[in-house]
Amino acid sequence: MLRIPRLSQLAAAALALAVTASGAAFATTQTSDGPASGRPAHAVASSSAGVDGAMRAALDALPKGDGRYTVAVEDLDGGNAAVYGAGTGAYDTASIVKVDILAALLLDAQDSGAPLTAKQKKLAAAMIRDSDNDATNALWKTIGETDGLDAANKRLGLKATHGDRDGHWGLTRTTAADQTVLLEAVLGDAHSPLTTHSQAYLRSLMTTVKADQRWGISAADGKGAAAKPPLKNGWLSRSATGLWDVNSIGRVEYGGHTLLVAVLSDGQHTYRQGVDLVERAAATAVKAFVKAETSDVLPKA
């Protein structure tokens, strides 16, 4: 089987994209460009074979909607990874940054040698399970806001995620590849700076989000409606445009494979339109990715 680097390395490659002021993009051979303003814009040197090409072809075949989106998928079992839409640049995190904020809080707790307080645990549960913004504001101050988040992200291996300089946590900018690096650290990577205890705590909260927030990457889980994968969604209506950012990150099981998935979108006219796009993109990408992994398309190692 063709092996490409784990997504932590792939994210570094995606970071090498040089996006000019006019929007032109140049990518490495391990990323696939996708839609910007609803139109495919393939990377100049993107791979056309294996999981990368299969995922790109499947997503390019979807109806072209409004706005833009990007998808990253990594197989924790097989070691393959692919990114679609890397050349479209960075996206607002909206509430998916709450996973990052809790990871930063847990790193601080590990450094101090003291567990989270009862109050911090209550706030963390509300932030992840309910996506409560007041709880997030409190923990955002605790971690040192933008500077604290950026410092934690250096330790977590994120290279293309940067906090908003005006201190708005929902306007943190990120890429799909970087979000999958975060998921590696949060959902059990052995090399994570987070302890196994911290990882288990984060995973438990992400697996028990409120029922009405179980949309998004869960649409790609092979268990269907019964699935309760660890995930976090984010949605934000931008006041300047009235258009929506809608994102989803997490881990799914499909066809015997354990996959990290991140879908980011912006420029959506409604929240519902964004949710539909994210779910359709996640399900399409995962299906194509796994089909390519398990077919004769990929050469044997």
Score class of each variant (00 low, 15 high):
Leu62Pro: 02
Arg251Trp: 03
Arg129Pro: 07
Ser112Ala: 14
Ser248Ala: 05
Tyr201Gln: 05
His269Met: 13
Val83Ala: 00
Ala109Ser: 15
Gly256Phe: 14
Ser47Gln: 04
Ser46Val: 00
Lys98Gln: 15
Ser95Phe: 15
Glu293Lys: 05
Asp132Leu: 13
Ser192Ile: 02
Thr29Lys: 00
Lys121Ala: 02
Gly144Thr: 10
Gln199Arg: 02
Asp75Val: 00
Val99Trp: 14
Ala152Met: 11
Leu243Glu: 11
Ala292Trp: 00
Val181Ser: 04
Leu298Trp: 05
Ala54Leu: 05
Arg68Val: 02
Leu259Ile: 11
Lys210Trp: 15
Tyr91Cys: 11
Thr20Val: 01
Asp92Phe: 15
Lys122Glu: 15
Gln213His: 13
Leu106Pro: 01
Gly216Val: 04
Gly38Arg: 15
Ser295Thr: 05
Ala104Lys: 11
Asp132Trp: 13
Asn247Gln: 09
Glu184Cys: 04
Asp132Arg: 13
Arg238Met: 11
Leu183Pro: 03
Met1Ala: 03
Gly222Thr: 12
Gln179Ile: 08
Ser295Arg: 10
Gln273Pro: 11
Thr29Phe: 00
Arg129Ser: 07
Ser248Asn: 09
Tyr254Leu: 04
Asp33Asn: 12
Ala135Asp: 13
Lys228Val: 07
Pro193Asp: 01
Glu74Asp: 05
Leu277Pro: 06
Gly144Arg: 10
Phe289Gln: 01
Gly148Ala: 12
Ile217Cys: 06
Ala14Met: 09
Leu62Thr: 04
Asn137Cys: 11
Leu156His: 06
Thr175Asp: 09
Ala177Asn: 07
His191Pro: 00
Thr117Tyr: 12
Gly113Thr: 06
Asp75Arg: 01
Ala227Val: 05
Val186Tyr: 02
Leu156Tyr: 06
Thr241Leu: 06
Ile249Val: 11
Leu105Ile: 12
Ser131Glu: 14
Lys223Ile: 08
Leu277Ile: 14
Lys64Tyr: 08
Thr20Ile: 01
Gly188Leu: 02
Ala21Pro: 04
Asn233His: 13
Leu2Cys: 01
Gly67Met: 05
Leu62Gly: 03
Leu17Lys: 00
Gly163Cys: 05
Leu15Glu: 10
Ala58Arg: 03
Asp92Lys: 15
Leu149Glu: 06
Asp189Cys: 02
Ile101Asn: 13
Arg272Cys: 09
Leu106Tyr: 04
Leu106Ile: 08
Thr28Gly: 05
Glu293Met: 08
Thr117Arg: 12
Trp235Pro: 05
Ala240Gln: 10
Thr31Gly: 04
Ala103Asn: 10
Ala152Val: 10
His269Val: 13
Thr196Trp: 03
Leu264Ile: 11
Thr175Asn: 08
Gly216Thr: 08
Gly250Leu: 01
Arg272His: 14
Pro229Arg: 01
Tyr254Glu: 04
Val297Leu: 11
Thr172Asn: 11
Gln110Leu: 08
Gly224Glu: 10
Leu236Met: 15
Ser218Phe: 11
Arg203Ala: 08
Thr180Phe: 07
Asp130Ala: 13
Ala152Trp: 07
Phe289Pro: 00
